[in-house]
Design a binder for these strands. Structure first.
Lengths: 213, 213
DNA sequence: TAGATTGTTAATCGATTAACAATC
DNA sequence: TAGATTGTTAATCGATTAACAATC
């Protein structure tokens, strides 16, 4: 398994490659060299070749990379050729916003259910999905082959819900709650801590001002 | 200026320190050693000490760190002692969700305006803020001392809006549009590419399955 | 074939961890 | 003072970049 031990630094760059290649493909570009791509993406050509060669040789000496082919291969590496059913926990503003993102469907992520503990929100529709009470969640996961749960609830309830998710066989949690979840390491967790992101921005504003008056 | 050239790796960890210290403070913990904090946060004590010493010596030999003091100092480093006025461009689901996050206010980020090009959304209220037409944006930025713009629009319009923001003196862009913005380097940009994040999750699911059958 | 460009090895750079003297 | 723990230097580890032989 040569795929083992790919660093998260590399994995974190794959979606960006995928995006640029998709755009190139859509504008009819057939081939591209690591040099050209590096200028477009503002990274080194060396890094591009190193990154790709973690997964195999997708290029051809003297030619470069076939855009369509490379795009498709990176998609496969990212697992976008597979379908994933996901549920959203939390039908607040953020949960509803995520539920309405139709783009996820294009990448194989299928919005299958939505849950909330607030009785007022039960029955509300987000796209074609009705919000269900939390009590239905565990059974729903087991019966509907759900692999991803999107946690869009306040941090207080997050840990408890996460434990339930794990017990019912969820494979991955996309965590928007502002807390670090404590789950077994075979459960994949991707954190989106919006306020952390905003603080980084804040830091960089202050820093810039300090350095430049 | 000893603050110069702090790596983004370090900066990216500051909000997490800030969060843990805030929780410790709220539970009444007065002092903590790098060792104790390292166990809590699952990082090395060495990394904590190194990270903090980029900004100064906040601890005391034989004692550790005063939680309250360190919390406050990291807050200052992050610029959270300053007020930042922000506007949200795009009153779609995501824009509205972000506008409704009252937590940002606690950190000094003040929601001051919201804009959309869709006539149907003009006048809609998000908290106490009315959605205004895009035409008002440039003047609003100049007249209301806005430093941060939250870009919550589709990628197609993002670059054009970004240019307008820059021309009117915005300092930072919190970019949720799925595109890399082309702005001068004195403009701080923090990207939140949700679909990239989801793809990383997808990769890790596939990888885990491959390695474990 | 000659030219171009990959795949890959080697060199460099930066970030993390370990160790320990300084000091509270 | 003795013990604890920082601040900081040194060692290690990993990631990025450079270089170039392989090859299309």
């Amino acid at each position: 398994m040569e795929d083992r031990g790919i660093s998260q630094a590399v994995i974190g760059r794959l979606p960006r490659y995928f995006r640029y290649l998709g755009e190139l493909k859509d504008t009819g570009v057939e081939r591209i060299s690591s040099q050209e791509l590096s200028e477009l993406m503002k990274v080194t050509a060396s890094q591009i070749r190193q990154d790709l060669n973690n997964f195999g040789g997708f290029g051809q000496q003297g030619y470069g990379y076939n855009v369509e082919y490379l795009y498709r291969e990176i998609g496969k590496i990212l697992g976008l050729d597979q379908k994933h059913h996901f549920i959203i926990i939390g039908a607040g503003n953020l949960g509803r916003a995520l539920g309405n993102y139709t783009n996820f469907e294009k990448r194989g992520f299928i919005f299958s259910g939505m849950f909330d503990q607030n009785p007022k929100l039960i029955g509300m529709k987000v796209r074609n999905i009705s919000v269900q009470p939390m009590e239905n969640m565990e059974r729903f996961i087991r019966e509907n082959d759900i692999d991803i749960a999107v946690l869009a609830i306040p941090k207080n309830g997050a840990e408890e819900v996460a434990q339930k998710l794990v017990r019912n066989g969820i494979k991955a949690i996309w965590n928007f709650a502002h807390v670090d979840l404590n789950v077994p390491k075979d459960i994949q967790v991707e954190n989106v801590h919006l306020s952390d992101s905003l603080m980084k921005l804040s830091y960089n504003i202050s820093r810039y001002q300090q350095e430049n008056g």
